[in-house]
Amino acid sequence: MNKEVVCIVCPMGCHIKVKKDENLYLGYTVEGNKCKRGKEYGIKELTNPTRIITTTVKIKNSHLRRLPVKTNEPVAKDKIFECMKVINKVSIKAPIKVGDVVLENILDTGVDIVASRSM
């Protein structure tokens, strides 16, 4: 398994090549990175890329019709659209405080959807 990724750890934007190599302790060779953090990032992007999802849910009894929310932890990248499907069905009522959980343990990932503002 090989992968080329653009590193986003800093603004340099290194093009990193990650290659599986069973003989190594880490299990991978990483080329093109200029720092240690780039190496970690490259391996993570190959093995288990994750992202924070930021989106909205429906809210009632408020001056706005949507409440901004986010995942309190990153979720697996390939689960983003599945998560969106679930989040899109959520509808809550104001008042709500920033950080309040609006949906627990989405898709059994252990990640919660939390309000990113009070309303």
Partner: peptide, 30 residues
């Protein structure tokens, strides 16, 4: 309401320099 354009910038990436954490726009504003 207060907060300006941050209230519509619901993505994260705000606050790394000021708060040493990644916040969404509304969180930063709040």
């Amino acid at each position: 309401e207060l907060g300006g354009i941050l209230q519509q910038c619901i993505h994260n990436g705000f606050g790394l320099h000021v708060f040493n954490e990644e916040l969404t726009g509304p969180e930063y504003a709040e």
